[in-house]
């Protein structure tokens, strides 16, 4: 078997999230794959627009909703621009799932705080819907989400949906200058809003963080000041990858390969790694 060979998927639906971010709903063209494909929240895959290459994104949909797979991406490089140009009915390549998972078993009975910035919400969204679909297993759900501007927020409709749910608290913010006159959320950077406006209680709580390296750093520091311990913080990293299989050699942080040993890391695991992410 050729480990680099992708499965073909059809784009069932395209959602324009922001001017340069789209969501695809994807369905396997092969019936057997449609029936047998399984993944867990936190895993990623390689998506390709044929003729343009492959890109790594987390699977953004929940394993509790298997009628299609979702991915959400920003048009920044050659392949993401290629994907961006595709429409409903077009074909993409899919290799995966790869990597480790969020250990949902360990979250059971606990309150969960999801903290994300910009395009980093999709990796957590898989977990969010997963736990919301099994809400009886978990405590209160909080979602702290920020982006540069109001326009850059993804999943706007779902955020509204989450805001309506009784056991969910949504804290949304945009960077200073990114607000509009109609904006009802906070204005400020995610770590700042998290610490000073939301200030969650660390008791029996797990914080799931996803964002650029600099945001992860400041968010960890903010949570530390709020009294969170290392074993209450978990994150997912997105180093550059090509193969997703531990062979092409670019996603490593020291001896840790993000594609094989990650992308999900507890803060205490991250602390043991060299600062090369």
């Amino acid at each position: 078997m050729n480990i680099y060979q992708p499965h073909l998927m059809t784009i069932n639906k395209v959602i324009q999230e922001t001017p340069d971010i789209k969501t695809f709903h994807l369905v396997f063209q092969d019936e057997e794959m449609r029936d047998n494909f399984r993944f867990k929240a936190g895993q990623f895959a390689e998506y390709s627009a044929f003729g343009h290459g492959e890109s790594t994104f987390c699977i953004a949909s929940s394993p509790t909703r298997m009628d299609h797979i979702e991915c959400c991406f920003r048009s920044v490089g050659k392949n993401t621009a290629g994907l961006f140009g595709l429409s409903e009915g077009d074909t993409v390549g899919f290799r995966g799932p790869y990597g480790n998972v969020f250990p949902l078993d360990k979250f059971k009975g606990k309150d969960l705080i999801f903290i994300a910035g910009g395009i980093a919400l999709p990796p957590l969204r898989s977990v969010i819907w997963n736990v919301l679909d099994k809400a009886e297993d978990f405590g209160h759900i909080s979602i702290v989400y920020g982006a540069r501007t109001v326009e850059d927020l993804v999943y706007k409709r779902e955020i509204e949906e989450w805001e309506q749910m009784p056991n969910v608290t949504v804290v949304k913010t945009v960077d200073p200058g990114g607000e509009t006159p109609e904006w009802k959320g906070h204005v400020g950077f995610v770590p700042h809003i998290l610490e000073n406006e939301f200030a969650p209680n660390p008791d029996n709580t797990i914080a799931l963080i996803c964002g650029p390296p600099i945001m992860i750093k400041f968010t960890f520091e903010a949570l530390d000041r709020l009294g969170f311990k290392q074993d209450q913080l978990i994150t997912t990293l997105e180093n550059r990858m090509k193969c997703g299989l531990g062979k092409c050699g670019r996603c490593n942080i020291g001896s840790t390969y993000v594609c094989l040993d990650g992308p999900v890391f507890w803060a205490e695991e991250l602390a043991k790694l060299p600062k090369e992410y």
Binding site: Y4, S48, G51, H52, G53, K242, K247, C248, G249, R250
Partner: peptide
Amino acid sequence: HCFDIVDETRGSKGYRIKFWDSCQFDHFT
């Protein structure tokens, strides 16, 4: 052992190509 993967196309046909890459290049990571 590091490598890169790119698509090369000619008209409607193309190949996905695996080729040597280097961790010494600035854009590698």
